[in-house]
């Protein structure tokens, strides 16, 4: 059975509207103007990932900014955000400090990017 997804390619300002279709394990991308659009479309269709940037509370009531050290599966963004609500950044945490290792088994760490 064929499955399809419509999206906009973000590889360049052209922003081609693309349609990705899977038929029996074979992918086809339509609407793209170049090869990069095909690669992007198949990636978004099969395993979309995003780098999550957010805040965690600090011990003194302020906020510190954090990021995932690498892109994580898109459908795990809100699970990660929920987890961040439960942790507190220690005093004097610095850019680069790892707050959570291998967050929710994604292989990505929660790293401090600024704040305090």
């Amino acid at each position: 059975m064929a499955k399809a997804m419509e999206t906009i390619c973000i590889m360049c300002p052209m922003g081609c509207p693309i349609t990705v279709t899977e038929t029996d394990g074979v992918f086809s991308v339509k609407g793209n103007s170049c090869k990069r659009g095909e690669v992007y479309g198949i990636g978004e269709f099969t395993a979309p990932v995003r780098t999550v940037t957010a805040l965690v509370r600090t011990k003194n009531g302020g906020v510190a900014s954090v990021k995932t050290s690498s892109p994580v599966p898109k459908d795990m963004i809100f699970d990660i955000l929920d987890g961040l609500k439960k942790i507190t950044a220690p005093k004097n945490s610095r850019i680069g400090d790892v707050l959570v290792k291998n967050v929710l088994g994604t292989g990505s760490d929660i790293v401090v990017t600024g704040g305090n």
Binding site: I8, C9, I10, G15
Partner: peptide, 12 residues
């Protein structure tokens, strides 16, 4: 705005 932001900040 950038296409990337339309997709990743709104469409997502």
């Amino acid at each position: 705005g950038l296409k990337r932001n339309i997709v990743q900040c709104l469409d997502d």
